[in-house]
């Protein structure tokens, strides 16, 4: 079985993210980290490696900054890393990136599962993986909270998904795309031996040509969505009204009345 973790680098979740004078997003000197959801995907891939002898690869479609995420996954124990990028992908949208990802997966040839986090925290979207699944013609098992079983012989997979109403048990056939939620596991730290390997690793970069897609299909000109502007959310209006609570019961009564007046209760 060959399991591919799809990831990208994002600013640390504790980072203060801002837009600079040129309209670019900045996060001060906060480090880039692996997209937090993808850490769970990498952990799950490693468990498949340990339990089922799966081969593991991590892939990103993006610029050099994605090496951070790739190397983190390698330091955790993922065996191989590949980055897909060339200048034609600069400014591409999710469709262009999904095409590049799907092409790279096809090139690998033997992939049974792509596993990734439920979304990328920077763009707040899972569009790339869903569209790539479509280009590959693979089923998607999203928001997976548990891989119940995989039968490597038949490729049957059963998972529990976290949906609005509760947990849904679903079965499907590999190859498939799996997106995971935090509940699925507790990701391990990178190991020191992994760090030694990752630090000296030269990550191969597959260009668009190598992944077999025409420039016109992926480049910015082919994008169907464009970002016009990024900006901070408007500040919440008004100052906080502190209700004195020397008498807690009284404070509670006053607050209850105010909330009822505001019609939020």
């Amino acid at each position: 079985m060959h399991v591919v973790v799809f990831t990208k680098s994002t600013p640390d979740t504790a980072a203060k993210v801002e837009v600079d004078a040129n309209g670019n997003v900045t996060w001060g000197d906060s480090p880039l980290v692996v997209n937090p959801w993808d850490e769970y995907a990498a952990e799950e891939a490693l468990q498949l490696k340990e339990k089922q002898g799966a081969n593991t690869t991590v892939i990103a479609v993006g610029p050099e900054m994605d090496n951070d995420a790739l190397k983190h996954c390698v330091a955790m124990g993922i065996q191989e890393a590949v980055r897909v990028w060339d200048d034609a992908l600069e400014g591409s949208d999710s469709l262009g990136q999904a095409k590049a990802l799907a092409a790279a997966i096809k090139k690998m040839g033997d992939v049974d599962m792509i596993i990734t986090g439920k979304e990328a925290v920077d763009v707040n979207s899972d569009a790339v993986i869903l569209q790539a699944a479509r280009f590959l013609g693979w089923p998607v098992l999203s928001f997976v909270a548990k891989i119940v079983e995989i039968d490597p012989a038949t490729g049957a997979i059963k998972v529990e998904r976290l949906v609005e109403e509760g947990r849904e048990t679903v079965s499907a056939k590999l190859p498939a795309v799996v997106t995971v939620v935090k509940e699925i596991n507790e990701p391990r730290y990178p190991s020191f031996i992994g760090i030694r390997k990752a630090a000296k690793l030269k990550i191969p970069v597959w260009s668009r040509a190598e992944s077999g897609r025409a420039r016109s299909e992926v480049e910015a000109g082919a994008a169907k969505t464009k970002v016009l502007e990024k900006f901070p959310p408007p500040p919440r209006e008004g100052e906080v009204e502190i209700i004195p609570s020397d008498d807690v019961e009284e404070a509670a009564r006053i607050l209850a009345e105010k909330l009822i007046e505001e019609k939020v209760v």
Binding site: T13, V17, V227
Partner: peptide, 10 residues
């Protein structure tokens, strides 16, 4: 985007 730390007009 960035989990609501920023907004994006697209």
């Amino acid at each position: 985007i960035y989990a609501g730390k920023l907004l994006s007009k697209e």
